[in-house]
Design a protein around this nucleic acid. Structure first.
Length: 464
RNA sequence: GGCCCGGUGGCAGAGUGGCCAUGCAGCGGACUGCAAAUCCGCGUACGUCGGUUCGAUUCCGGCCCGGGCCUCCA
């Protein structure tokens, strides 16, 4: 019933059927955060999108057969700078940021990855990889640095689709004098006395950013190549290009990963969200105003390779769509722990390069089917399918009634206060005193409570 | 300057060589004491100019516009 999975590979620039190298061990690596500040909604996109990929692969190959690695970069210049600025120890900054990151990821409904390695715990593997590159003539030592020599790899530039001349012509950063070639990049750099550092054959120092991922990916997913390597589009160059250079040259492999997946940017009013533009919005800020599940749905509302605009309208629409779906579950008394049923609609959609908009359309179709069904049996069947299908997207896992009557914001009516007013209104309606009944309804509406009179005389309510 | 993506109805956002996305908003109707929710119906959408074709929003080319990357960046 379900079709084969096809994914767009950045390297070949084509949608290609996905066949795992080893179906018993499907291997995925996603570049995780550099932990110097809380993540913004742009950072959240790969988190959620590739969580859906993780769920899809688990569904297709078995939960225990998918290895999903998402690293944590906890040594980096930006971390050193931020800790200095805050006047706090580096470890305090990184530990706190990691805690915040995990809280954000959980709020967005992301499953924990199989492995979440920290760069500082894999310095040994990085040094080993650098030694191999030196021994094979792909790297050299200069003034305490170890540099990867880009001309030693003829295939360099394939992923990003640029040749050497372009790179040189486009270079906008001053070239360090010790570089043999302007494109050469750092594998290891010396550390000042007040900076974090580790002993190495080249003196006390710390790793370059790119070598971290090469080392951790191989440590958990080796031998090369593994199945999928993913991240944001801005990582294509130089980060992923350099990872490929390091890993492939060290292991004499043509490929580091069979599939390279890259998500598009989150935009603010049509522009990239970036600190330099001053338009970043942290996930934590959005979570103060919208349920995490609504943020997740919004992040999946456009195809992952397209740009996605962040706006109140878009987030509100996502929240309202969830309301519609949760109403269907609540109306049909679908229990929170009911796994629901699976018709394969969402899976079919996702198999076409993670077509989440089509998957969401399928969920709307199931909601409509439930709402318009003639018999209670048909209604419940569609509602249970909605629940089961949504699970593959990591949605609709909450208690429906609780979601619709979510925690009362400060200063508004408690659930008991709402029920008390509903009891008075019921008496008024029974006495056909509609003026009183409507006054109570207006009072509740002003407090954000919307009523729904049912044919059987009872009244449902939701909090807006 | 080089390279890469896009331009779809009021908005968001899929997709397809000829027929349907989907959601929100809007309009009309059903239901309701009135609402809300829900359902039914409605709206001559594919940047522009050429080409290929029986037929193009969909393929090809030019142009215009927008966004991104070119060693901080999800």
């Amino acid at each position: 019933m379900t079709s084969g999975l096809r994914l767009f590979d950045t390297l070949s620039r084509r949608k290609t059927p996905f066949v795992p190298l080893d179906p018993a061990r499907v291997r995925v690596y996603v570049c995780g955060p550099t932990v110097y500040q809380r993540i913004h909604v742009g950072n959240a996109r790969p988190l959620v999108v590739f969580d859906v990929l993780f769920r899809l692969l688990r569904r297709r190959y078995g939960a225990e057969r998918v290895v999903y690695v998402r690293n944590i970069t906890d040594v980096d210049d930006k971390i050193i700078d931020q800790a200095r600025k805050n006047g706090e120890p580096i470890e305090a900054l990184t530990e706190r940021t990691i805690r915040d990151f995990r809280a954000d990821a959980e709020a967005l409904g992301c499953l924990p990855p199989t492995h979440e390695p920290r760069a500082t715990e894999h310095i040994g593997e990085m040094i080993g990889l650098i030694e191999t590159l030196l021994a094979k003539g792909h790297a050299y030592v200069a003034e305490g640095h170890v540099l990867f020599h880009v001309p030693s790899m003829p295939a360099y530039g394939r992923l990003s689709g640029r040749d050497r001349e372009e790179q040189i012509a486009g270079a906008r950063v001053e070239v360090a004098p010790y570089k043999k070639d302007p494109a050469d990049f750092v594998l290891w750099k010396p550390a000042a006395a007040d900076e974090p550092g580790w002993p190495s054959p080249w003196g006390r120092g710390r790793p370059g950013w790119h070598i971290e991922c090469s080392a951790m990916a191989e440590r958990y997913l080796g031998p090369l190549p593994f199945d999928v390597h993913a991240g944001g589009q801005d990582l294509i160059f130089p980060h992923h290009e350099n990872e490929i250079a390091q890993s492939c040259c060290a292991r004499d492999q043509e490929l580091m990963a069979r599939f390279w997946l890259h998500n598009g940017f989150v935009q603010m009013a049509g522009e990239k969200m970036a600190k330099s533009l001053g338009n970043v919005v942290r996930v934590a800020e959005v979570l103060e105003r919208y349920p995490g599940e609504a943020v997740r749905l919004w992040l999946l509302s456009a195809h992952y390779r397209q740009p996605l605009d962040c706006s109140e309208e878009a987030l509100t629409e996502a929240r309202d769509a969830l309301r519609r779906w949760y109403r269907v579950l609540a109306d049909n008394r679908i229990a929170t722990d009911d796994p629901g049923t699976c018709e394969g609609r969402v899976e079919d959609a996702l198999c076409d390069d993670l077509a989440t908009p089509a998957a969401i359309a399928a969920l709307h179709g199931l909601a409509t089917r439930a709402n318009k069904a003639e018999s209670a049996g048909e209604r419940e069947e569609a509602a249970r399918a909605l629940k089961g299908e949504a699970a593959l997207l990591g949605l609709l896992g909450a208690d429906p009634a609780g979601w619709l009557k979510h925690a009362a914001p400060a200063g508004t009516l408690s659930e008991a206060e709402v029920e008390a007013r509903l009891a008075r209104r019921r008496e008024a309606r029974k006495a056909r005193d509609f003026a009183t009944a409507d006054a109570i309804r207006a009072e509740l509406e002003a407090a954000g409570i919307v009523l729904k009179d049912r044919p059987d005389g009872r009244t449902d309510w939701e909090r807006r």
